[in-house]
């Protein structure tokens, strides 16, 4: 970069450099997922050849997908929200108790889920954006609050037997042309659950939000550089607040999707989901320093994470600790890659 180049030119150069980095992270993520899945298909075979395996991954991780998308929004603005896992647990428990013990209906249970998520989002967003507390501390307190509230609502597992809801849980939406033939020669159609559709809709909406709306671009601006965003006339506090509110809302939706999949409420639900969500976002190329991130990347982050979990399980290492260790190792590797890319970016700037 020559000294004589005008400000506009250097700006353009920087922008292009950062975009390539973003794309690079995204490409790495997608490549990792594809390679991993192909390896699983070639070497493991057990079920990985069937399309249904892929749909099962989606079915199991619909809620994680929504949680991770919310997390990505907050991380783009430079914050973090670690309360989402326990909020999920709280939503499950509250909805289960509402349906089972208080005789509620499906519609009100959805309202409860969204309400809980929004409440957490608004309170945490207010504390983070307007009172300027560290997001980690605020959401850590939120995590423990939700954890405690779950046991206060009910300390045992509550299975839901409410007829319309169970029907909704069991609804299988057939995916055309993706079925497989079992040993007896009977054609079994591939299916996804209702939750997957909702999750995909959320993904598309958030993708559009980030790419084409003013608010979405503001998220990037605030995360990229707080002060310059402020000087550009962006309401930084409001933007951060809205990111947390959206994340809370996502936690509410994700919680309800988890509830749909599990069909019960328990204090042990969604343990460590926040870590999985953060890991998915990081694997998906969201930079922790804020300003860089992509919903599509997050989608592939979730897929990679759940595929590796499935591979670990099908390798016969069924003990729960192996999954945690692999997730930890994977997180470590991606963090290192990010760190190297960031260092390269900083060098370029100089």
């Amino acid at each position: 970069m020559s000294i004589n180049s005008n400000a506009l030119g250097s700006n353009k150069l920087k922008k292009r450099a950062s975009l390539t980095d973003t794309n690079l992270l995204l490409i790495i993520t997608i490549a990792v997922f594809v390679v991993m899945y192909i390896c699983a298909v070639v070497f493991l075979k057990k079920g990985f050849t069937k399309p249904q395996m892929f749909f099962n991954i989606l079915n199991e991780n619909a809620s994680l997908l929504v949680l991770s998308c919310g997390m990505t929004l907050v991380m783009i603005t430079g914050g973090i929200d670690i309360s989402v896992g326990q909020v999920t647990s709280l939503v499950c428990m509250a909805c289960a108790v509402h349906l089972e013990k208080n005789g509620g209906n499906v519609f009100t249970s959805i309202l409860i889920a969204l309400g809980i998520g929004l409440a957490f989002g608004i309170v945490q967003g207010f504390l983070v954006a307007y009172l300027e507390f560290q997001p980690f501390i605020v959401t850590l307190a939120g995590l423990f609050f939700a954890k405690g509230m779950t046991t206060i609502v009910c300390s045992d597992r509550v299975a839901v037997t409410f007829e319309p809801f169970v029907k909704l849980c069991r609804t299988e939406i057939t995916v055309p042309f993706m079925g497989s033939v079992n040993k007896k020669g009977i054609y079994i159609p591939a299916y996804v659950e209702v939750g997957v559709i909702v999750a995909l809709v959320v993904v598309i909406l958030l993708f559009c939000l980030l790419r084409w709306t003013k608010l979405g671009r503001n998220f990037y601006a605030v995360g990229g550089n707080n002060q310059s965003a402020n000087m550009l006339g962006i309401n930084v506090k409001l933007t951060k607040f809205l990111a947390h509110v959206l994340c809370g809302l996502c936690a509410g939706i994700g919680g309800y999707l988890f509830f749909l999949h599990a069909c019960s409420g328990s204090p042990l639900h969604a343990q460590g989901a926040e870590m999985n969500a953060i890991a998915s976002s990081i694997i998906g190329g969201t930079l922790l320093s804020g300003g860089v991130g992509n919903i599509i990347g997050t989608l592939f982050g979730v897929l990679s994470l759940s595929t590796i979990k499935n591979i670990v399980t099908s390798l016969g290492l069924e003990d729960a600790w192996w999954t945690n260790i692999t997730v930890g190792v994977m997180l470590c590797i991606f963090l290192l890659v990010q760190s190297v890319i960031l260092a390269r970016k900083n060098n370029k700037k100089k």
Partner: peptide, 16 residues
């Protein structure tokens, strides 16, 4: 790497 995120690795894997 931010300390809280760097230690997230062991937070996830430590007990295992």
């Amino acid at each position: 790497i931010q300390p809280m995120v760097a230690t997230l690795i062991l937070f996830t894997a430590g007990r295992s």
